[in-house]
C-alpha cells in the first residue's frame, strides 16, 4: 500500500513539473486562436482577453515582421553553423598537430567565449563593431550591416563548441592516418578528406548540431550586435516591451516541428534499444542452450 502510494506520488510530482514547464507554451498555443482585432488594428498585447476563435493570426504570421525575423533566424543559423563547422574542424585538426604549449594557449583562449557570460560576449562585439563602423565612416566607406555582424558574432561563439566536440574524436583516431595517406600518394587535401575527416565524422556532426542549436537559441549576443534587423528572439523582446505585443502563433510554428523532430529521433533510439535488448536476450538464450 505504502509503496503504491509513493509510486503514484512520484508520478504526480513528475506530472506537475512537466505541466509547470509547459504552462506558457500551452497558453500561447491556446491564444494563437484568439481574435486580437480591436477596431481595425491587431493588438497582440491583449494576451489574456478571449474574444473568439480565429485562424487569422496564422495568416498574419508570415506577412508580418515575425515571419521575416523567423526566416532570418533560420538563415543565420544555417550559414553560421556551416561556416563554424568548416573553420572549427580545420582548426581542431591543426591544433591537434601543434606543440603542447601553443595548443594549450589556443585552447584556453577558445574556452573564453564558452565561459564568458553571453552578456559580456554581446557587448564586446557591440563595441568592436561600433569602433570599426566609426573608422569606416571616417574613411567615407559603407558601415558593416546587421546581417554580416550577426553572422560574424554567431560564427565566433559557435566555433569553440565545434573544436571541443571534434577534439576528443581526434584523440581516439590514429595519429598516423594523415601521414600514412600522404605516403600512399595523397595530396594534403586528399589525405584530409579521404582519411582524416571520415574518421572523425561523428564529432563533426555533433559539433555542427551544437553550433546550430547555439545560433537558433541565441538572444543576448544578437540583441547587442544588431541595430535594426535582427533574429526572432530580439524581435520578440523588443515587441514584448513595446505596446505591440507578439503574435502567439509563433509558439505553434516553433513547437510543432520541434516536437515532431524530437519524437522521431527519440522513437528511433527507443526502437534501437529495444532491438538491442532482444538481440542480447537471444544471445543469452543461445549461450544457455550451448551450456546445456
Amino acid at each position: 500500500m505504502v509503496k503504491k502510494a509513493v509510486r503514484s506520488l512520484k508520478y504526480v510530482y513528475l506530472g506537475l513539473m512537466v505541466f509547470f514547464l509547459y504552462i506558457p507554451i500551452i497558453y500561447l498555443i491556446v491564444y494563437s486562436f484568439n481574435d486580437f482585432t480591436v477596431g481595425r488594428r491587431v493588438a497582440y498585447a491583449n494576451l489574456g482577453k478571449w474574444k473568439g476563435f480565429t485562424l487569422q493570426n496564422y495568416a498574419n504570421l508570415f506577412s508580418g515582421e515575425a515571419g521575416s525575423s523567423l526566416l532570418l533566424t533560420l538563415e543565420i543559423a544555417a550559414i553560421s553553423s556551416i561556416i563554424a563547422t568548416v573553420i572549427g574542424t580545420a582548426a581542431a585538426i591543426g591544433i591537434y598537430a601543434m606543440k603542447k604549449r601553443t595548443r594549450n594557449l589556443i585552447l584556453n583562449v577558445s574556452e573564453l567565449p564558452m565561459v564568458n557570460p553571453d552578456l559580456v560576449t554581446g557587448i564586446t562585439f557591440m563595441m568592436l563593431f561600433a569602433f570599426v563602423n566609426s573608422v569606416l565612416v571616417k574613411l567615407g566607406l559603407k558601415q558593416v550591416g546587421d546581417i554580416p555582424k550577426l553572422l560574424i558574432a554567431h560564427i565566433s561563439f559557435s566555433i569553440p563548441y565545434v573544436i571541443f566536440s571534434v577534439m576528443p574524436r581526434l584523440r581516439q583516431s590514429s595519429d598516423m592516418l594523415y601521414e600514412a595517406a600522404m605516403d600512399l600518394g595523397c595530396s594534403p587535401l586528399q589525405a584530409l578528406f579521404k582519411a582524416v575527416i571520415p574518421d572523425i565524422m561523428p564529432g563533426i556532426t555533433s559539433g555542427f548540431i551544437m553550433a546550430l542549436t547555439m545560433s537558433l537559441d541565441d538572444f543576448v549576443v544578437s540583441y547587442f550586435v544588431s541595430d535594426l534587423k535582427s533574429v526572432l528572439s530580439v524581435y520578440i523582446y523588443s515587441s514584448a516591451r513595446g505596446a505591440k505585443g507578439v503574435n502567439p502563433a509563433l509558439a505553434t510554428v516553433i513547437f510543432i516541428p520541434l516536437v515532431t523532430l524530437l519524437l522521431i529521433v527519440n522513437l528511433r533510439r527507443i526502437s534501437k534499444e529495444r532491438e538491442y535488448e532482444i538481440q542480447s536476450k537471444k544471445v543469452k538464450l543461445k549461450d544457455k542452450g550451448g551450456n546445456l
Binding site: 513539473m17 506558457p24 497558453y27 537559441d217 507578439v246 513547437f255 527507443i270
Partner: peptide, 25 residues
C-alpha cells in the same frame, strides 16, 4: 528516455517567447 525528452523540449523553445508568455499569464 521518453519522459526526459518532455523535460528538455521547452529548453529548445525560444526562451524570450516563454518569458513573454509568463508576463501575460
Amino acid at each position: 528516455g521518453f519522459i526526459s525528452v518532455l523535460f528538455f523540449v521547452p529548453m529548445w523553445m525560444n526562451f524570450v517567447l516563454r518569458t513573454y508568455a509568463w508576463q501575460a499569464i
